[in-house]
Design a protein around this nucleic acid. Structure first.
Length: 218
DNA sequence: GTTGAGCGTT
């Protein structure tokens, strides 16, 4: 019976988190408790489960009060055969709340988010959206179809991210209105379109000869 | 009833 706290993570700020991988899908925290408890006092053991089926995902988290016990458990239980499977014990990384973990220990040394650091926000948002799909349930073998779709979305995001101030659609429409669609014929001579490069657009005084037109006039 | 890279609160 799991006598661990089920109301969220306990004092995870002073505990060392260990990640147990390669555990059987039928292995429960009670099965790992006697194994990890032999190397130290286990604060809590948590096994992530699927919200749909409720089965364990194949890995568990074990928390210790001291790093020595955790390290000893890693060295002693790493490779131990449990339920017919050799488990892999190692220090856990960052948690769901991006908790700062230093060598397995969670510290409160969380740097306060600055104002101009918001530029990184969108990227994290993509990551969250990516996880929202079934990023954890990927089988790395049958998810090829979904991978194609994700890649397509990634491309779209990249193109939209390139825009800094104006949208590419606006420029495209604007260009189409200014010029007739007939000019867009690819068979119109082999010469390139007289249109300027979008990257150079907005920089009329761009030094092409590598020298500023203003300085060195002599 | 199955599977097997990874990082967490039902």
């Amino acid at each position: 019976m799991s006598h661990f706290r089920r109301s969220g993570p306990p004092e995870n700020r002073d505990t060392f988190s260990l990640l147990v991988l390669n555990v059987s899908f039928r292995t429960t925290a009670d099965d790992l408790f006697p194994l990890f408890d032999r190397y130290g006092d286990v604060v809590d053991i948590y096994i992530p489960r699927d919200r749909r089926t409720g089965d364990s995902r194949g890995f568990a988290f074990v928390r210790y009060n001291y790093e020595g016990e955790a390290q000893d458990a890693v060295d002693g239980l790493d490779g131990r055969k449990v339920d017919g499977r050799a488990i892999m014990v190692q220090f856990a990384k960052y948690g769901p709340n991006s908790e700062k973990i230093h060598r397995g220990r969670i510290t409160e040394e969380i740097p306060k988010p600055r104002g101009h650091f918001r530029s990184r926000s969108p990227r994290w948002r993509y990551r969250d959206d990516y996880r929202d799909r079934d990023y954890r349930r990927r089988s790395r073998s049958r998810s090829r179809e979904r991978y194609d779709q994700d890649r397509y979305r990634d491309s779209d995001h990249r193109r939209r991210s390139r825009t800094r101030s104006v949208s590419p659609d606006y420029d495209r429409k604007h260009d189409r209105n200014s010029h007739s669609p007939a000019h867009r014929s690819p068979s119109h001579g082999k010469g390139h379109s007289p249109r300027r490069i979008p990257s150079c657009e907005g920089t009329p005084s761009r030094p092409r000869d590598g020298r500023s037109p203003r300085s060195g006039s002599h």
